[in-house]
């Protein structure tokens, strides 16, 4: 399959409302008890001025909303290789985020077992004023299925 066709593919915009309880639940799952995420009184006295979400929280956005981009690819071949977050400002409770997924790059690299295909998926998140909050950039390795080699 030629992944090149997917380059530039853009999903429809979806809205994500950030809840205080979700931030707490996310921090607790990591076992990260930083009061910046859960203690309003503490957070208000810091330079953040209030509660913020943990830095990897954006990964929870768009996961269960069914809004993710349908790439028509075989899930079993997709491997999460790298993750990057580009922050403009921290996410806060009550943020309403306008999100959009896009295939921002498709490329091939020579691996040990032959050419490997890569897909870069960006989710751009903006606030109500249209200001960028964060970009979540996922690098997916699209690997050949094991045992799927056809006999020569």
């Amino acid at each position: 399959m030629d992944l090149e066709n997917l380059n530039g593919l853009t999903g429809s915009e979806f809205i994500f409302e950030v809840e205080k309880r979700h931030i707490r639940q996310f921090a607790e799952a990591i076992g990260d008890l930083n009061p910046l995420y859960v203690d309003e009184e503490y957070a208000a006295k810091t330079s953040y001025g209030g509660i913020i979400a943990p830095p990897t929280f954006p990964i929870a956005i768009g996961q269960d909303s069914g809004e993710s981009l349908d790439l028509g690819l075989d899930q079993r071949r997709m491997l999460h290789g790298e993750q990057e977050f580009i922050y403009n400002r921290p996410i806060r409770p009550w943020d309403i985020l306008y999100c959009q997924m896009k295939v921002s790059d498709v490329y091939e690299r020579e691996g040990r077992k032959g050419p490997m295909q890569f897909l870069v998926l960006d989710t751009e998140m903006k606030d109500e004023s249209g200001e960028l909050v964060v970009i979540s950039r996922t690098n997916i390795i699209y690997r050949p299925l094991r045992g799927s080699h056809s006999p020569v």
Binding site: P55, E82, E84, F85
Partner: peptide, 10 residues
């Protein structure tokens, strides 16, 4: 200090 970029390879 505040993170402006954070990335990881698995």
């Amino acid at each position: 200090a505040m993170p402006s970029n954070f990335r990881m390879r698995f």
